[in-house]
Every structure is written in C-alpha cells, then in structure tokens.
Write a protein that binds this DNA or RNA. Structure first.
Length: 421
DNA sequence: TCTGGGGTCCTAGGACCC
DNA sequence: TCTGGGGTCCTAGGACCC
C-alpha cells in the first residue's frame, strides 16, 4: 500500500480568502454554528494565541485589539469548494476516499510517477491554481503514516508542504520528533495512559509490544501501532459505507422557555432530518429526541431524551415531526431555560427496500409523491421554501450567524462581482 | 449575554434464553 | 447440604475524529 493524504490548510479560512484576497496575510477566524467558537484559524490568528475551539466571547478582546477578521461558518460555500478540490484531485489518482470536508486519501498504487517530489508539488500547484485552496501532501505506506506525514508537511519547516514517509529511514528520523498525542487516533485519554507507561513519541508508540497496546488502548490502539510500523490495517474506502444515523441538533440563539418554541424547533429539526434521509434514499426505523439546559452556566440543570420505534421505517417529514413532537411533550418540563435540542434518526434502511405494509401501502405512495414535490421545490427555490406549518416562521430560537459571508458559488443573488477598469 | 455539530467505533454490563 | 453457566443481544457511555 502507498497512500497520500491531501489536506487543505486552514480550509474554511482559505475558502473565505479565495473570494476576498485582501484577507491574505491578515489574521482570520471562522466561527462554529451559532457563532459559538473558533473552528478555523489562519496562521496569523494561531500566532496570536487563538486556540482551536476558543469560545468567541472569551477572545473578543484579542480579536478587537488585533483586528482579526471574523466569519460565521458558511457551509454552502465550504461544501462546494470541497467538491471542486476533490474534482481536481481525481485527475491525480483513480482511487480517492473523501475522508472529510477538507481531507482526502489518494491511492498511489501503480502511480510510479508519484515517487518523485515534483508529482506532489504539481498536485499542490494545480489545486491552488484551479480552486484557490492551498493544500499539504503526506505520503506513507499506511493511512496513519500518511496522516502523520501530512502533519509534518504542514508544521515542520523545510518540507514545503510535502512529506513522504515511504522509506523506513525517513520514518526513523521523523517519528521520534512527533509527540504521541499528534498521532491519528490518540486522544487526550489515550495520551495520558501512554504517558504513564513512559510513551511520549510516535516512535515509542510504534515500539510498544502488541499485547500492551491492546490492553492500554483496546483494538483501535493495537491497529495504530501496526500502522505506525508500516503494516496497513485500514483500507482505502473509495465508496463510503452506508450511514448508520442522521442527526439534526442545534444550540439555540437564546434560551427557550416556552413549549411552543420547543415544538417549533423540534418540528424544524425533524423536517430537516427527513430531507437528509431522502437525499440519501434512506428511511429510519428509530427516532430519538433530546433537550437540555446550558451546562456551562448556573441555570438549573435538566436533560432528558426519549425515543420511539416506527412500526414501518419512514422518511416522511410529517410522520417524523409528529412523533418528534410527541416525544418532546413527554420529556419537556416547565420552568427551565433550554439551551439545545435535537432529533436523531437511526436503524436506517434503504428506502426502496422498506417492506410494503398492506394497510398503508397506498398512503406510502401518496406520501412519497408529496415529499418528492416538496424536495423538488426546495431544491429549486432554496431551502425551506416549503416546510411544515409547525416549523414556525419567527423562530426566536434560531441560531446566530452575525458574520456570514455571501454564498459566492451556490446562490445567484450572492455571486461575487468583478469590475474591469 | 456569549461555550458547535455530526459522525464512528469499542466496551462493559444487564437482560434474556436455554 | 447443594441454587449454573455460557451465548447473544441491546444499550449507555466513553473515546475519538473533523
């Protein structure tokens, strides 16, 4: 196996910069949903000490003092830019696994050219030219080593955005310099356990006996050790495995104290969840709904969840919303300030394979026609052109997005304007 | 005032069955 | 007197990822 991980640098920030080059060289951050915390930072913002996940209200002074440019997240834009990057990458390898919105694994099997450093540099330059997005390339004999190589390409000076750990000698030089917490799959809990064993670097982890790795970090840890030694345990997955669950959950823009608002929110989440099911041609056999108060402040705490199994798997927004509201009614308690709620669908099955049910077969056919019509309208006219009456119009609970940039590439009304002079 | 959202996988432990 | 044990399924919770 030989695999490359191509990872966009500060992806969301880079997307914003494509459409506003004045942001180049300036500190820029992108906030999470609800403008809650920083989820992407430019190098300049990192240098100011803005950490990943920093709550916005805690860094507001820093932001003001250094004139940090702030953006609410704009997933329509980032999703579209991601698609463009992957289309470009497809020119370089016949087998791609899109791992996340800003990372893809490329199979290099049989690509003799890819052993030359020029190949990787050409890939970076092409992606930059065609999409405007800067990327780094990490190469290795396993996915875990490709991830590690990518981190080195980004952080260690002298690599110029490309690091190839195909050769054992190269790995022996690099792995002792990488802290174990930077290894893919080693989180804070795992790193703490390893520290107690005196394991501090990727090289020391690679040298850990298999049974110790298994005992300390379970099977996932044992796999990581193998992968660090150069033995692949994780396959490239060009075709994404079937989804297991679909969730729509949100923190509220301001606390919800009335059931009428909660009912609206849960209805809107259920409608969106139904849309997601139909996008993937799935139906759900199980629904759960949760709500809870703010766990960061001194508000009285309350959290609860409830669930229901559908007699026949469904993807009808009306049916999901009805069931979700019923659950919400049973778990709602008056007198609390609710901060977040969500609906989660599971037991997903292919919608085409739902066992027809004698009593409701004709209802199902009508339901499908209605949902198809709603989806078609919303695709053409924009999301939520048509929704259920219960989803609410005023939506006081709606999330904040005070700094959103235009949807440059996916909304005609928001196309960038270029002037020639 | 203000702290994201959406996923996956693994394990332990209880329920249940024979 | 003496009160089983192994397999399977499900769920909750933890850990990790981006």
């Amino acid at each position: 196996m030989r695999v490359a991980l191509v990872d966009a640098n500060n992806f969301y920030v880079s997307c914003e910069r494509v459409f506003d080059p004045r942001l180049e060289g300036k500190p820029v951050i992108v906030l999470s949903n609800n403008d809650g915390c920083a989820v992407a930072r430019s190098d300049e913002a990192k240098a100011l000490g803005i950490w990943m996940g920093a709550p916005f209200f805690q860094i507001r002074d820093l932001v003001r003092r250094h004139r940090v440019r702030v953006f609410s997240s704009n997933y329509a834009l980032y999703g579209d830019m991601s698609r463009r990057v992957n289309e470009t990458l497809a020119r370089f390898s016949p087998e791609i696994e899109v791992y996340s919105i800003d990372e893809s694994f490329l199979s290099l099997a049989g690509l003799a050219d890819s052993t030359r450093p020029e190949w990787s540099q050409d890939l970076r330059a092409t992606v930059r030219r065609w999409t405007g997005i800067p990327v780094s390339v990490g190469i290795g004999p396993t996915k875990t080593l490709a991830k590690l190589a990518n981190a080195c390409a980004k952080k260690m000076p002298g690599f110029q955005g490309v690091c190839d750990l195909t050769d054992r000698a190269e790995r022996e030089a690099i792995l002792p310099r990488v802290p174990v917490a930077k290894v893919w799959g080693i989180g804070p809990a795992g790193a703490a356990k390893l520290a107690r064993l005196g394991v501090r670097t990727a090289a020391e982890l690679a040298a850990l006996p298999a049974d110790v790795a298994r005992k300390t970090l379970t099977v996932a840890g044992a796999r990581i050790v193998e992968e660090l030694r150069g033995t692949p345990c994780l396959d490239l997955e060009p075709i994404p495995p079937a989804r297991k669950g679909i969730a729509v959950t949100r923190s509220f823009g301001k606390p919800v104290t009335r059931f009428s608002e909660m009912r609206e929110a849960v209805t809107a989440f259920a409608v969106r969840a139904g849309e997601k099911l139909r996008e993937h041609n799935l139906a759900a056999g199980h629904l759960s709904v949760f709500m809870h108060t703010n766990r960061f402040n001194d508000d009285p705490r309350y959290a609860n969840a409830g669930s229901v199994a559908f007699a026949v798997a469904t993807n009808d927004s009306r049916e999901i919303a009805r069931a979700a509201v019923r659950i919400a009614q049973t778990i709602w308690r008056d007198g609390f300030r609710y901060a977040k709620a969500g609906v989660v669908l599971s037991d997903l099955v292919n919608a085409g394979k739902v066992a027809p049910d004698l009593f409701t077969a004709s209802d199902r056919a009508r339901s499908k026609r209605l949902m198809d019509a709603i989806d078609a309208l919303n695709r053409r006219m924009g999301r939520e052109t048509v929704t259920l009456a219960g989803a609410g119009l005023k939506r006081p609970w709606r999330l904040r997005a005070a700094h959103r940039s235009p949807r440059y590439t996916t909304a005609f009304a928001e196309l960038p304007v270029a002037r020639a002079r």
